[in-house]
Design a protein around this nucleic acid. Sequence first.
DNA 1: TTGGATACTTTCCTAAAAGTTAGTACCATT
DNA 2: AATGGTACTAACTTTTAGGAAAGTATCCAA
Lengths: 115, 115
Amino acid sequence: MPDFIYNNKVYYNPVEFAMDRIGGTWKMPILWRLKERVFRFGELKKDIPHITDKMLTSQLRQLEADGFIHRKVYAIVPPKVEYSITDKGRTAIPIIETIRNYGLELMEGEGIKSK
Amino acid sequence: MPDFIYNNKVYYNPVEFAMDRIGGTWKMPILWRLKERVFRFGELKKDIPHITDKMLTSQLRQLEADGFIHRKVYAIVPPKVEYSITDKGRTAIPIIETIRNYGLELMEGEGIKSK
DNA sequence: TTGGATACTTTCCTAAAAGTTAGTACCATT
DNA sequence: AATGGTACTAACTTTTAGGAAAGTATCCAA
């Protein structure tokens, strides 16, 4: 598997490519919530501990640009914006679940109990 | 899922915990190779494009500390060190495969053909 | 006219990850 | 006496992710 370039960025392998789309601290927590229902900006912010306005905005923008979520703006005041997961976004859910379960497995192996 | 602390580091969720063990640019490429056979330091270095001595050393050390690989030193000159995957390390392989396949799937969706 | 609500944007800053370059120990071979 | 091979280690710099704090636009209600 040689290197390849996409949007001016060099990737060494498919794992890097995947993690560039759904990795980082916030993308999976966001997708994980949107799999259940539509969320507004403020709802996501309340529901995801520690996330800042800036990170929420930037991660939503990237997920949208990559086609994982959809952004619907209502032209009212105060503004209302709804975020929903797309079909493409849904393909990430089983992956997240796999990683999440693996994390739980590792945690159990270390005797970490959180909930 | 609340926050938890392990080794003085705060984790927000199990995904973060998993990615802290096997994530980053180099750990999966290393484990991916060790799943087939034992490698010496120099062999890994030749086989993994772009990796530097420093990154290879530090990632091997972390994987060893976390119990994913085993390090066997031969007391000869010039030095010989062999790295092998452990049972725990093997549990990461299906995860890597899942992410890797997902990456390939996404790449195909974008019309990226690499090999 | 002040404040609240919503969904941001902008600027500045810090910490962690990763990269660059150079050097080391050891002995065997030439 | 110099060279080469192996597996590092150290010092330093760059890059990136993420965080903090403040500012913006709009309209309405008090």
